[in-house]
């Protein structure tokens, strides 16, 4: 349950952004959570709503977009968008050339994408 410490860092960014743009209140927060980021969206949501109390985002809704894992194959150079990582046929090898020399290019990311604010 490291989601709470990540949410604490998220709020540091939210507070700072709000100051910069002169927001009176944050009404919506949209985050991108990579499938391989190690963060569980549901736990993140729980942590968010318990942390937001008393902050500028007190009443904010949280939108989570889960970003899928993407690889680049060093065998054939293709980019590979994968299916669900929990599925039994999920493979870490390139489906085009079979190479195992694939490099993760997205799916570990954790981003605050945008805020909806009232000024």
């Amino acid at each position: 349950m490291h989601e709470l410490s990540i949410v604490a860092d998220l709020f540091t960014i939210i507070e700072e952004q709000s100051r910069q743009v002169g927001a009176k209140r944050v009404t919506k927060v949209r985050v991108l959570i990579g499938e391989l980021s190690g963060v569980v969206p549901e736990l993140f949501r729980t942590a968010f709503h318990s942390y937001k109390k008393g902050t500028i985002a007190d009443k904010a809704r949280l939108e989570i977009k889960v970003t899928r894992v993407k690889f680049k194959c060093h065998g054939c150079g293709k980019e590979i968008k994968t299916g669900d990582i929990s599925s039994p046929d999920f493979s870490y090898a390139c489906p085009f050339c079979g190479s195992r020399e694939v490099e993760l290019i997205s799916g570990r990311d954790l981003y605050l994408e945008k805020l909806e604010i009232e000024t």
Partner: peptide, 18 residues
């Protein structure tokens, strides 16, 4: 009427740790 607007942030949440 309060004005609502969207602000694009795109900031790495773990950026401070990194």
């Amino acid at each position: 009427e309060k004005s609502k607007k969207e602000v694009l942030v795109l900031e790495d949440i773990l950026g401070s740790n990194k």
